[in-house]
Simulated assay, not measured.
Amino acid sequence: MNQFERLYDEHENVKVRFVGFTTEHTRYDFGIVYTNLFFGKPLVVCMQTGRSTLLDPKDLEDPEHLQHAFKIENHLQAEDLCEFLKITLPSTTFHTQYE
């Protein structure tokens, strides 16, 4: 049964933040997983749809990126989400994972 080549198998105690909020247009419920893996980028999970993505501050400069990642139909809703995440996610420099 050597059909799988294991790339990584890490165990880590992580900090998770659950946040729900509303805007004029919609309600959001997210889980944000802060980990040292994935170049230190937080894993943002939409609790309503199960969609997730790794985000860094540069990703938040492009609302279309969030619109695509979370399948948001309205561009204004994506802009609202970007604004919220800009004040919620850390603006740290990420490290290289594979050295």
Results as ranks from 00 to 15, higher is better:
2 N>A: 12
2 N>H: 08
3 Q>I: 09
3 Q>R: 11
3 Q>K: 13
3 Q>N: 13
4 F>A: 03
4 F>W: 06
4 F>E: 07
4 F>M: 05
5 E>H: 09
7 L>G: 07
7 L>Y: 04
8 Y>G: 08
8 Y>H: 12
9 D>S: 15
9 D>F: 05
9 D>G: 09
10 E>D: 15
11 H>Q: 14
11 H>V: 14
11 H>T: 15
12 E>H: 01
12 E>K: 03
13 N>C: 03
13 N>T: 13
15 K>T: 12
16 V>K: 11
16 V>P: 03
16 V>Y: 00
17 R>W: 07
17 R>Y: 07
18 F>V: 09
18 F>M: 12
19 V>D: 13
20 G>Y: 03
20 G>E: 15
21 F>Q: 04
22 T>A: 12
22 T>N: 09
22 T>Y: 01
23 T>I: 00
24 E>N: 13
25 H>F: 05
26 T>I: 10
27 R>W: 04
27 R>G: 04
28 Y>N: 06
29 D>W: 10
30 F>G: 04
32 I>L: 13
33 V>L: 10
34 Y>W: 04
35 T>P: 01
35 T>D: 08
38 F>E: 14
38 F>P: 01
38 F>C: 10
40 G>E: 09
41 K>T: 12
42 P>C: 06
43 L>T: 05
43 L>I: 09
45 V>A: 04
45 V>C: 06
45 V>Q: 04
46 C>W: 06
46 C>D: 15
46 C>K: 02
47 M>K: 15
47 M>R: 15
48 Q>S: 07
48 Q>H: 10
49 T>D: 04
49 T>G: 01
49 T>M: 05
49 T>N: 02
51 R>K: 15
51 R>I: 02
52 S>W: 08
52 S>I: 00
53 T>P: 04
53 T>D: 10
55 L>P: 07
55 L>A: 02
56 D>K: 09
56 D>R: 07
56 D>V: 04
57 P>R: 07
58 K>W: 11
58 K>T: 13
59 D>M: 06
59 D>C: 11
60 L>K: 06
61 E>Y: 02
61 E>H: 03
61 E>V: 08
62 D>I: 10
62 D>V: 11
64 E>L: 04
65 H>N: 05
65 H>K: 15
66 L>H: 00
66 L>E: 00
67 Q>E: 08
68 H>F: 01
70 F>W: 07
71 K>L: 13
72 I>Y: 00
72 I>E: 02
73 E>A: 09
73 E>M: 04
73 E>I: 09
74 N>D: 15
76 L>K: 10
76 L>Q: 12
77 Q>E: 15
77 Q>L: 08
77 Q>C: 07
78 A>C: 03
78 A>F: 01
79 E>Y: 00
80 D>I: 00
81 L>G: 00
82 C>M: 07
82 C>K: 07
83 E>T: 12
83 E>K: 11
83 E>Q: 13
84 F>E: 02
84 F>I: 01
85 L>E: 02
85 L>D: 02
88 T>M: 13
89 L>S: 01
89 L>T: 01
91 S>W: 05
93 T>C: 03
93 T>W: 02
95 H>A: 11
96 T>S: 13
96 T>I: 09
96 T>R: 12
96 T>L: 12
98 Y>M: 08
98 Y>R: 11
98 Y>P: 00
99 E>M: 05
